[in-house]
């Protein structure tokens, strides 16, 4: 039995699925569909989640390596930070409100997504990146963010990362 946490909840995986990549465990076993499948070989970053606070590409991390790890997915990102750091954002009428992480907030304010499929991974990559680089230069962002956005929303991703950095400082 492999024991670890997902969004602060303890989960267990049978040893006979120890070779299963974390991506599929999250999507299929935990029904957390926000982590996306893009390439399956750790190249595109659509499956990015946090392991002990660091960004990892979950398609290439087998469950066997996760004993006692803390995993955070897009669904748990907002609750991971203190309540002070999150804000509630409202779109349209009052019926849909969400508690957001400052990076998600910056994504919303910049209206970043196009098709949107890669964006949970982009947000997870950016959130981990900003912890290491709280005031990133353009060069830092160019080198540090390597996820593919097939729609090419890079201009807005870059701006949102800068805005999030400002808001979090």
């Amino acid at each position: 039995m492999i024991k670890f946490t997902v969004n602060q909840k303890t989960v267990e995986a049978d040893d006979d699925i120890a070779d299963m990549p974390l991506l599929w465990f999250l999507r299929e076993n935990q029904n957390l569909k926000g982590t996306k499948f893009g390439c399956g070989i750790g190249q595109c970053g659509a499956c990015t989640v946090h392991m002990n606070g660091n960004a990892i590409r979950s398609c290439s991390v087998p469950l066997a390596t996760l004993a006692n790890a803390d995993i955070t997915t897009i669904e748990g990102l907002a609750s991971k930070v203190g309540a002070d750091a999150t804000t509630s954002y409202q779109v349209g009428s009052s019926k849909q409100t969400e508690t957001l992480h400052p990076v998600q907030q910056a994504w919303v304010e910049g209206d970043v997504p196009q098709c949107g499929y890669c964006q949970p991974g982009q947000i997870m990559a950016a959130a981990a990146f900003l912890k290491q680089n709280p005031a990133p230069s353009d060069q830092d962002i160019s080198e540090g963010i390597t996820n593919i956005c097939r729609c090419g929303s890079y201009v807005r991703i870059r701006q949102a990362i800068k805005n999030a950095a400002k808001n979090m400082s």
């Binding site: 999507r27 957390l32 569909k33 926000g34 982590t35 996306k36 499948f37 997915t73 897009i74 669904e75 907002a78 954002y89 779109v91 349209g92 849909q96 969400e98 957001l100 998600q104 994504w107 919303v108 209206d111 970043v112 997504p113 949107g116 499929y117 964006q119 949970p120 947000i123």
Partner: peptide, 19 residues
């Protein structure tokens, strides 16, 4: 105007066929 599906996208809601 912003994308009407913006909040669903940035919070990882299951809105695609694969989900």
């Amino acid at each position: 105007k912003h994308n009407i599906d913006l909040l669903d996208i940035v919070t990882g809601k299951p809105i695609y066929g694969l989900d």
